[in-house]
């Protein structure tokens, strides 16, 4: 790839992980990253909660910050009943956040850059919140699709709109996360490819000129760090919003 074209999408290719055992059971590098994210989050909590000090140390403060952040988000968005769904929201938030952050490191795989992963998570949230709606309200949950205070002759027009708006939730939830992560990684790869192309075609002048794409990549790293955290936050807060709609129906 030194002198050829820029292969920006090769980094998302699935390969076998964990050696020959992984190859035998189709355990991919994406699964490796997921397992890594789960292990890291459990390890952070296991280490951070060992001290149980009244005045927390660094690790304990990190754990408490994460916990309280998600807990407040649940209570603020869903209401007092939100605590019941706190474990789900926290698991999703921590898994996606760690997945995004792990993917930022060189040689690591960003599993949130695959629509198969994000759509699975989004479909789970969608089906779960719909299930919560029917569980809490029974068949009265269908009234969610009938806006209040609307003349009857408008309903044939408005109900399909509401249903489509509802069905679009998993799409917007999954596409947002997937697109943000993929776009960031592709941009990194493209700018890094520019550096190689410049050096290959212009020699020593090209090597000097490639400082520009290098600087852009450094700036992008900061942006990607923001996006990684923000997208995990957006996914979690939308999960809360959908659960709020399911519990309160408006």
């Amino acid at each position: 790839m030194a002198a050829g074209s820029i292969d920006a999408l090769g980094q998302f290719k699935l390969t076998a992980g964990l050696g020959p055992i992984g190859r035998a059971v189709n355990f991919t590098n994406s699964n490796e990253a997921m397992l890594g994210a789960a292990i890291v989050i459990v390890a952070i909590f296991a280490i951070g909660l060992q001290a149980r000090a009244l005045v927390p140390g660094r690790m304990q403060a990190l754990v408490e910050l994460l916990y309280e952040f998600v807990r407040n988000m649940c209570v603020d968005t869903i209401g007092e009943e939100g605590l019941r769904y706190f474990p789900l929201v926290f698991t999703l938030f921590a898994f996606i956040l760690l997945g995004n952050l792990i993917g930022l490191f060189p040689y690591f795989f960003a599993f949130t850059s695959h629509i198969a992963v994000t759509l699975t998570l989004a479909m789970f949230v969608f089906l779960f919140s719909t299930g919560v709606g029917f569980y809490t309200h029974g068949f009265r949950f269908f009234k969610f699709f009938v806006p209040e205070g609307v003349p009857g002759w408008l309903l044939p027009l408005l109900v399909p709109i509401e249903i489509i708006s509802y069905l679009s939730r998993p799409v917007s939830l999954s596409v947002r996360l997937f697109a943000n992560m993929t776009a960031g990684h592709v941009m990194w790869e493209v700018f890094a490819g520019f550096m190689l192309l410049l050096t290959a075609s212009l020699g020593i002048y090209g090597a000097f000129a490639s400082v520009v794409p290098l600087g852009l990549n450094v700036a992008l790293a900061a942006l990607e760090l923001l996006v990684a955290g923000l997208q995990a936050y957006v996914f979690a807060i939308l999960t809360c919003l959908y659960l709020h709609d399911a519990v309160h129906m408006h």
């Binding site: 603020d76 489509i164 708006s165 069905l167 679009s168 939730r169 917007s172 936050y233 957006v234 807060i237």
Partner: peptide
């Protein structure tokens, strides 16, 4: 602190929300 975060999160959402409904409708 949450309001700035919320505004940024909202800005990220809006574009996709608009397109997603369109995609679902056309697919249906």
């Amino acid at each position: 602190a949450g309001s700035a975060q919320r505004a940024l999160a909202l800005a990220m959402r809006l574009g996709v929300e608009l397109v997603a409904a369109m995609v679902i409708a056309v697919v249906i």
